[in-house]
Design a protein around this nucleic acid. Structure first.
Length: 343
DNA sequence: AATACGGGGCA
DNA sequence: TGCCCAGTATT
């Protein structure tokens, strides 16, 4: 392992990308960057990181914000529970931990939204604790390096990799070593077409020697895609278009959308009942805005979106969880990508 | 152990 | 079109 760490650090200091969260030991900034980067590419997350720090320079600023503000800034990044947990945890640290950021792996692990990877990343980057931060890059790198065919999503693999990577991460340069393994995985030991010619570890890489890079890492079969059929109703009033807050335990929780009837090929009568029942209106006319449904793809669902224009008389009172969106507040209401595109 | 949870980039 | 990304929480 000694020769690995020397080669790895040498390569890292020469080739690492210049990223803002690498220039700080501030746990708040490191935590923020790690949450944003979960399942998210650096290119995509970078602007969100900068924008969050601009709006919330410190943990206390974030704790003082409303959830809606936080979700609005997060809009478009996906996996919105990250934003809700981020806000919850900021408030938790300020109110329950006296504003003191947890400073070790086990304490960090207690925080909502912080799992083993993120706890290890913060502990090693900010406090040089010797714990392995194992993300997708590291699984790929080490599975190839040692020819490990254990499917990486199993608990068996978790233990196996934790043990192996632990041997590499020592106290003195824990932060650099963790970042170096991830960086090497991201830049050189890529999923497809790894750049083995430029890899500092190729001299002792099992997959390179056997030319089996493409077989590793082993993953389990993907889950089935579900299809859902969303009918959205655009109801225009003097005050703006009607939106509805998603409250249920489902995608896009706490984001706004148009009033929704989830049904494949709804009857006109069903739609009328839905609108009348919800908004207490009497006369209405309906017309489809898009004849063929727009397919909005999520990682495990395909949403078939049909937008309907609803013309109706004035709605007297908006039901709970509803509001109007107009030019004044459109910049405040968090909405999913599909709705934003429409607006 | 399996599943839910977004959106975008790339070959 | 399918795969993958600085994963975590829930069931």
């Amino acid at each position: 392992m000694q020769e690995f760490s020397v080669a790895l650090l040498g390569w890292y200091h020469k080739n690492k990308r210049d990223l803002p969260w690498r220039k700080t030991k501030n746990p708040y900034k490191i935590w923020l960057s790690e949450i944003i980067l979960q399942q998210t590419r650096v290119d995509q997350g970078l602007k969100y990181y900068l924008s969050f720090l601009e709006h919330f320079p410190t943990l206390f600023d974030l704790a003082k914000a409303s959830e809606q503000e936080v979700l609005k800034l997060w809009q478009g990044l996906g996996y919105y529970s990250r934003a809700r947990n981020l806000h919850f945890t900021a408030k938790f640290i300020v109110n329950e931990l006296d504003g003191k950021f947890p400073d070790n792996y086990n304490e960090l692990l207690q925080l909502k939204g912080v799992g083993k990877y993120t706890a290890a990343a913060i502990a090693s980057f900010a406090y040089d604790e010797a714990v392995p931060a194992i993300d997708g890059n590291v699984y790929r790198l080490f599975s190839r390096l040692f020819g490990i065919y254990t499917p990486i999503h199993t608990t068996k693999a978790q233990k196996e990799f934790f043990k192996i990577v632990s041997e590499l991460i020592h106290e003195k340069e824990a932060g650099y070593l963790n970042q170096a393994t991830m960086e090497l995985g991201a830049i050189v030991c890529r999923p497809r077409n790894p750049d083995c010619e430029d890899c500092p570890l190729a001299f002792k890489c099992w997959a390179f020697e056997k030319n089996k890079q493409h077989e590793l890492p082993v993953k389990k079969a993907k889950i089935q895609i579900k299809h859902r059929y969303f009918n959205y109703f655009i109801i225009e009033q003097e005050e703006g278009k009607i939106l509805h807050l998603r409250e249920q335990k489902d995608i896009w929780r706490h984001l706004y959308q148009f009033p929704l009837l989830e049904r494949k090929n709804p009857l006109l009568e069903e739609i009328e009942n839905f609108i009348v029942e919800r908004f207490g209106t009497s006369h209405l006319t309906l017309s489809k805005i898009n004849e063929t449904p727009i397919i909005h793809k999520l990682s495990h669902q395909h949403l078939h979106l049909t937008f309907w224009k609803v013309t109706t008389d004035k709605i007297q009172e908006l039901p709970k969880w509803h509001c109007f969106v107009n030019e004044d507040n459109v910049s405040k209401l968090p909405v999913p990508k599909s709705i934003e595109s429409y607006i």
